[in-house]
Write a protein that binds this DNA or RNA. Structure first.
Length: 961
RNA sequence: GGCCCGGUAGGCAAAUUGGCAAAGCCGCCGCACUCAAAAUGCGGUGUCUGUGGGUUCGAGUCCCACCCGGGCUACCA
């Protein structure tokens, strides 16, 4: 038995030879898909360039609509994948019928790990499998009837696309961030302007010499320090199991790779970095200028992690110890200090002998601080981040050791001990803290464990009986001879103490960020090569424009060297390093022919998706990234203060931080350098939900085919059974291994694409996740069948609509439906829009003959959701042109006013009577009608009336005394 | 632990944002068609919105507490 046998594909009964069946739908759909493609129905004209239409007036109203970039997986699609594509298609078709010039296309994010891993297994070139996968996905999506401008499709692996990815990289490489530009907001500027400033002395050359005194190599070194893309030898996330390094965003909270879940280690390696931290403030602040879900904005704010406070320097015998604190107002309560085990000052701070006043708890039983600290650092280094957290998070078992040194609290001269402890992280702030147990829970725990004093400097409320008090309150115990914070609130106290610290030169107000620069190299094959070469000094040189794109060479083996997942002390070995004839090149970069070495790393998978919105706008651009006229039209700001960007971007929430942060960063650099007029890539973001599915396991825990599981009642208990045996049900993803996959192809065969589209859109609101239920799809087919039957005879195939005008009631139902559907479409409530159309259609079913005008209106309203059947009916109704550009129906306001409305009469909030009244009825009349009501009198039963609430014309509420 | 969503008939869902709870779809029941079944059509079927309190003339909707499910985050100074 076929898995999808619902019976709907069987040949139509003899008495209904012209019924709308899956088979008929399939023929109609493919015919219209061919015609749309042939006619270029969904081509969106550009203002300029090859995609412009000479002589045609370009609509001022435009709508740029995007789906998140699909990765062409070899696994094929399941019914969950097209959900977003259908939704954007419905919106695009609707906007087009509203008169907008709609830009909607789909490209492919085609570099990436799965293709490379498949290549490693099979020996096939990843380009081959990737292109095959794209072809398969194109075919599956074309069958959905998506109204895309196919001229604007591309893949990130296309040389013409890759050229511009590399070009943007060089733009970033050739820029620096001028923090003073734009009144301190900062702006990226060409590196040449920095060199100019050094040359003419406007900017001081580090090291005290003048620019002309520096050698060429020294000048390069100075400039390279400022680049927005720079090579750095710094601690990075090395993942031996994958054989590559990863960005912070690609490492999970427990220190493993997001992809593959391998352990990740910190290693010092020479890698490309992107100075995204320069944009931290703008990336946070501009979130207020875009229409994104609050949840995603919050995730980005948290990831960037801006906190304002102060840096304060504490004097120690080992030199000044600088800390960052968000609570400088509590400085008087700092009773000890803690530095991270990796802190560079640890060696200087560690003394040879315990001081006399060291308490027993501080020494950990060690003979000397040197022993104790060495031992503690060894232990800390051996632990992964995960182990450190597991051992000490949630308030358990804070560990640490005394260094033997003391620091001087700059506000009161107090001599306070300095500890090493791993609850302080080297990667945040300065890697050192002042500990204020009175106002910090972590410090409180540490203080209790290590017998350290606790001083409250914020007065808790009288009823407070906790330990550390982190709330608002007046400062106490916070005065020296020069300044007193006592009595001030937290905000004022902070301002006062920062001013004092600054006047003393021991600290200043500071902002720190959690965000780190973006590690941009990967030791992989299937990615964009870097368009740079290195000279004999190891300085990077940009390749000239005419040498782009740098294409990937063929390699003997596509895999980087991978190691045992835990082999931390291994070295990355990228596949490109194995092709010396590619790596070693002779070039003339201005100094005559010289030997250079190419970069053997590739760009991360995110590079291609950092700018693809711009390629949709101008997919054929060859002489520049994007024609400014085209970019301004599709993405430019529309009002003062508008950041511009794509009008609507739909995709899953999983890219909230990675892709959406990186692409905002690139876009802002391009804006600063004058290549685009928009400051943000995506104006409105919408997160769709997911289609989920049930999966079933038998008593061994093995998955069984979900479509063969039946819900049955046995012994009065209902449960799920496979081949008569009970199985366990779980809810989650669709996947081959879970044996619960349903594919779009299954749906096309059994129901047709239109039914599939209607079903997915009617399941529920777009932003909610919901379970797939194959047996419910038939409801959408029945709906389309009834629409068909109202217009086309199932017996003869003739159009059966009548030329007579619609009766009054039908007209009112029609126009109420139009108003509701329009509002629902605009608000992306497709499920309720479909419900309204079903209601209208059910009403039409009761008429003997459906008036043509009503039928045509219904067909137009249906077109965004079920475009093929709508086109077919529209054509059969005598219209030779596609309805894609027909105006979407508009309701006649006169027909929306009801002749009478039902007024509900309540007594004490309970409905007791209903009155039919004219909509214009006034309060007094309604009050009297209600009080005269028999039902109301009965309910009151002699009680007096306290008051009467009237909400004309819908409701009266009589409140008894 | 913190923050954010969600909880409405057997299932998926709607409810002009404080005013008749349950539109629409599936399921289920019955009838028609059929030799029979499927398909299709017609008709019917559901109950007080997770729990407890509060505000209000009136609460699915607002407030408080709790329970359940999902997501994000987690020593960030």
């Amino acid at each position: 038995m076929s898995q999808m046998d619902t019976g709907t594909t069987s040949s139509p009964a003899d008495d209904a030879p012209y019924r709308y069946t899956a088979e008929v739908a399939g023929q109609i759909e493919q015919r219209w898909q061919d015609r749309w493609e042939h006619d270029g129905t969904f081509n969106a004209p550009n203002p300029s360039g090859p995609l412009s239409e000479a002589g045609a007036e370009l609509p001022a109203a435009k709508f740029f609509l995007m789906d998140m970039f699909p990765y062409p997986s070899g696994k094929g699609l399941h019914v969950g994948h097209p959900l977003g594509y259908i939704a954007t298609d419905v919106i695009g078709r609707f906007r087009r019928m509203c008169g907008d010039n709609v830009l909607h296309a789909l490209g492919y994010d085609a570099f990436g790990l799965p293709a490379e891993q498949y290549a490693v297994q099979t020996g096939q070139h990843p380009r081959k499998t990737t292109e095959e996968n794209i072809a398969t996905m194109r075919r599956q999506l074309r069958r959905l009837g998506l109204a895309h401008d196919t001229r604007r499709s591309f893949a990130t692996i296309d040389p013409e696309y890759m050229r511009w990815t590399q070009w943007i990289f060089l733009q970033i490489f050739d820029s620096w961030y001028d923090t003073e530009a734009d009144d301190g907001r900062g702006r990226a500027r060409p590196i040449a302007e920095l060199v100019e400033q050094f040359e003419n002395g406007e900017r001081t050359v580090p090291g005290g010499r003048t620019w002309s005194e520096l050698s060429e190599v020294e000048r390069r070194a100075v400039v390279d320090e400022h680049r927005l893309a720079y090579v750095s030898e710094s601690p990075v996330n090395w993942c031996p199991g994958l054989g590559t390094v990863l960005s912070n965003e690609e490492v999970t909270a427990d220190g493993r790779s997001e992809r593959g879940n391998f352990p990740v280690f910190k290693r010092n390696l020479r890698q490309w970095m992107m100075r995204i931290t320069a944009y931290a403030d703008r990336l946070i602040d501009d979130l207020d200028r875009i229409d994104w879900p609050e949840k995603v904005k919050t995730m980005q704010r948290n990831w960037i992690g801006r906190s304002t406070g102060a840096t304060v320097r504490f004097a120690t015998d080992g030199g000044d110890l600088e800390v960052f604190t968000t609570r400088p107002d509590t400085l008087f309560g700092a009773t000890f200090m803690v530095v991270a085990p990796e802190h560079p000052l640890v060696d200087q701070l560690t003394t040879n002998a315990w001081p006399e006043d060291a308490k027993p708890a501080w020494t950990g039983g060690h003979a000397t601080p040197a022993d104790a600290v060495a031992d503690y650092r060894t232990q800390a280094a051996a632990k992964t981040d995960l182990e450190r957290q597991a051992a000490s998070s949630e308030g358990r078992d804070k560990t640490g050791i005394f260094t033997g040194s003391f620091a001087v609290n700059p506000v009161n001269g107090a001599r306070i001990p300095v500890f090493v402890a791993d609850y302080v992280l080297m990667g945040y702030g300065t890697g050192a803290i002042m500990a204020v147990p009175g106002q910090d829970e972590r410090d409180w725990e540490f203080a209790e464990r290590f017998d350290l004093p606790i001083v409250r400097t914020v007065e808790p409320p009288a009823e407070f009986d906790g330990e550390a008090y982190v709330g608002e309150g007046p400062a106490i115990n916070s005065a020296n001879e020069e300044i007193s914070l006592d009595g001030l609130g937290v905000v004022e106290a902070k301002a006062a103490i920062i001013a004092w610290l600054e006047s003393k030169g021991t600290g200043e107000g500071t902002v720190t960020y959690r965000l780190r620069d973006w590690l941009f190299s990967r030791q992989r094959y299937w990615g964009e090569p870097f368009p740079v070469v290195y000279d004999e000094n190891g300085s990077p040189f940009a390749l000239p424009d005419d040498q782009l794109p740098v294409e990937l060479p063929d390699v003997p083996d596509y895999s980087p060297r991978t190691y045992d997942a835990d082999a931390a002390d291994t070295e990355p070995e990228p596949p490109l390093a194995r092709v010396p004839e590619w790596v070693e090149v002779e070039l003339d970069l201005g100094d005559g022919p010289k030997r250079y070495r190419r970069d053997t790393n590739t760009m991360p998978n995110w590079a291609g998706s950092c700018w693809y919105e711009l390629r949709y706008v101008d997919p054929t651009a060859t002489d520049r990234l994007v024609d400014p006229e085209n970019e301004r039209y599709w993405m430019g700001p529309r009002r003062d203060g508008d950041a511009g960007g794509v009008d609507l971007y739909i995709g899953g929430v999983e890219h909230a931080v990675l892709h959406l942060l990186y692409s905002r960063f690139w876009h802002k650099v391009l804006f600063d350098l004058g290549h685009v007029s928009s400051e943000e890539p995506f104006h409105k973001l919408f997160n769709q939900g997911y289609i989920q599915a049930y999966a079933y396991t038998d008593e061994r825990g093995q998955y069984v085919p979900a479509e063969q599981v039946l819900e049955e009642e046995q012994g009065g208990v209902s449960g799920w059974y496979f081949e008569g045996k009970p199985v366990n049900r779980e809810y989650g993803k669709m996947g081959k291994s879970l044996k619960n996959i349903v594919t779009p192809d299954d749906m096309y065969d059994a129901y047709g694409a239109d039914t599939f589209r209607v079903y997915e859109m009617s399941m529920g609101p777009l932003d909610l996740s919901r379970p797939w239920e194959t047996r419910a799809v038939v409801g959408s087919l029945r709906f389309l069948q009834r629409v068909w039957r109202n217009i086309v005879s199932e017996e003869t195939g003739e159009v059966v609509v009548g030329m007579h005008p619609a009766d009054d009631e039908t007209n009112r139902v029609l126009h109420r439906t139009i108003a509701a559907v329009r509002a629902d479409m605009e608000a992306m409530r497709f499920n309720t829009a479909i419900a309204r159309m079903i209601e209208l259609n059910n009403h039409l079913t009761k008429l003997t003959v459906v008036p043509r005008e009503v039928a045509e209106t219904l067909v137009l309203m249906l077109a965004p959701v079920a475009p093929h059947v709508a086109e077919e009916l529209w054509s059969r109704l005598g219209h030779p042109q596609s309805l894609a550009h027909e105006p979407f129906p508009v309701a006649d306001p006169a027909l929306l006013v009801e002749e009478t409305v039902t007024c509900v009469v309540q007594v004490a909030g309970k409905v007791r009577d209903r009155l039919e009244v004219p909509p214009s009825v006034d309060d007094d009349t309604l009050r009297e009608l209600a009080l005269a009501s028999e039902a109301v009198r009965r309910t009151l039963d002699g009680r007096g009336v306290r008051t009467v609430i009237v909400r004309a014309p819908r409701l009266v509420n009589v409140v008894p005394a």
